[in-house]
Amino acid sequence: MTYTVNCSIILTELPLLERPAAVKAAGYDAVEFWWPFSEAVPSDGEVDAFVNAVQDADVQLTGLNFFAGNMGGGDRGLVSWVGREDEFADNIDVVVGIGERLGTKAFNALYGNRLEGVDPQAQDDLAVKNLAAAGRAVAKIGGIVLLEPVSGMDTYPLKTAADALAIIERVKDEEGVDNVKLLADYYHLAVNGDDVPAVIAAHAADFGHIQIADAPGRGEPGTGDLPLDDWIADARAGGYAGVIGLEYKPTQADPFAWTRA
């Protein structure tokens, strides 16, 4: 299992529940999703339909995001969102339930944007508490929580690997929770101006997950100028043994043609 296909950004021309089967038909056996529901706590029927779609397709759900708010409206997570603590806590229970049913081990917690009129320190302190709670919960099913630098949102405070690692270190030091790991999305790191080779050299063995897209444009590998193959190889050499998440915006009818070239 080398690649896992992010079905929230690839195959979007299909209804969401049809995408796992389309991934399998394309020759891949692993998928990941952003939060696939409109609410933090969907109905039992919605959860069952999602779980069944993954199981019926005979693919492995390798990764799932926690609820991140209204992504289309610009939200980027509840982890640091003062005032929505109960919503995040309730979502943790649903995430763990899905993970337990599908054997999922990696869960991406988007940090959240800076809030106008709220002390950034208060947001960061809440984030440490929420990440620790999530880490403890997913540890019960052998899971890890992923924390990701993100590009494209000025109000999202984690832009470099160092930004995320500083929070991860706080979670470990202050809460004693050590299963929060860096999600190294090479596209986001590169677009934000981070030194990706240096990040790989220093931290590859501790990456919780890698995702890829090319830049500029966030298309599939080969549409931009990032040395993605080299960066993946360097991470492997540095100790990363996990799957590679395909999280790009396809530019052609066959979104996986580059893997067969």
Rank of each mutant, 00 (worst) to 15 (best):
99 G>C: 02
102 L>M: 09
103 G>R: 09
104 T>L: 08
105 K>L: 10
107 F>R: 06
107 F>I: 03
109 A>S: 15
111 Y>N: 06
111 Y>G: 09
112 G>A: 03
112 G>C: 07
116 E>I: 08
116 E>S: 12
117 G>N: 12
117 G>F: 10
118 V>S: 13
118 V>N: 01
119 D>A: 13
121 Q>C: 02
121 Q>V: 11
122 A>K: 13
123 Q>I: 01
126 L>A: 08
126 L>K: 02
127 A>F: 06
128 V>C: 00
128 V>W: 01
128 V>Y: 00
129 K>V: 15
129 K>C: 07
130 N>G: 07
131 L>S: 11
133 A>W: 00
137 A>H: 10
140 K>T: 15
140 K>R: 14
140 K>E: 14
141 I>V: 14
141 I>N: 01
142 G>D: 06
142 G>C: 03
144 I>Y: 05
144 I>H: 05
145 V>H: 04
148 E>R: 01
148 E>L: 06
150 V>M: 12
151 S>V: 04
151 S>I: 02
155 T>W: 02
156 Y>R: 04
156 Y>G: 08
157 P>S: 09
158 L>M: 11
160 T>D: 11
160 T>M: 14
161 A>G: 14
162 A>M: 10
164 A>H: 04
167 I>S: 00
169 E>R: 12
173 D>N: 15
173 D>C: 01
175 E>Q: 15
176 G>F: 00
177 V>W: 01
178 D>H: 03
178 D>V: 00
178 D>L: 03
179 N>V: 10
179 N>G: 10
180 V>P: 00
182 L>S: 12
184 A>K: 04
184 A>V: 03
185 D>W: 06
185 D>M: 07
186 Y>P: 01
186 Y>A: 13
186 Y>R: 01
189 L>Y: 02
191 V>Y: 08
193 G>R: 05
194 D>M: 08
194 D>H: 08
194 D>G: 08
196 V>G: 10
198 A>M: 07
198 A>E: 13
198 A>C: 05
198 A>K: 13
199 V>D: 10
202 A>P: 07
203 H>I: 05
206 D>S: 14
207 F>A: 09
208 G>P: 03
210 I>L: 12
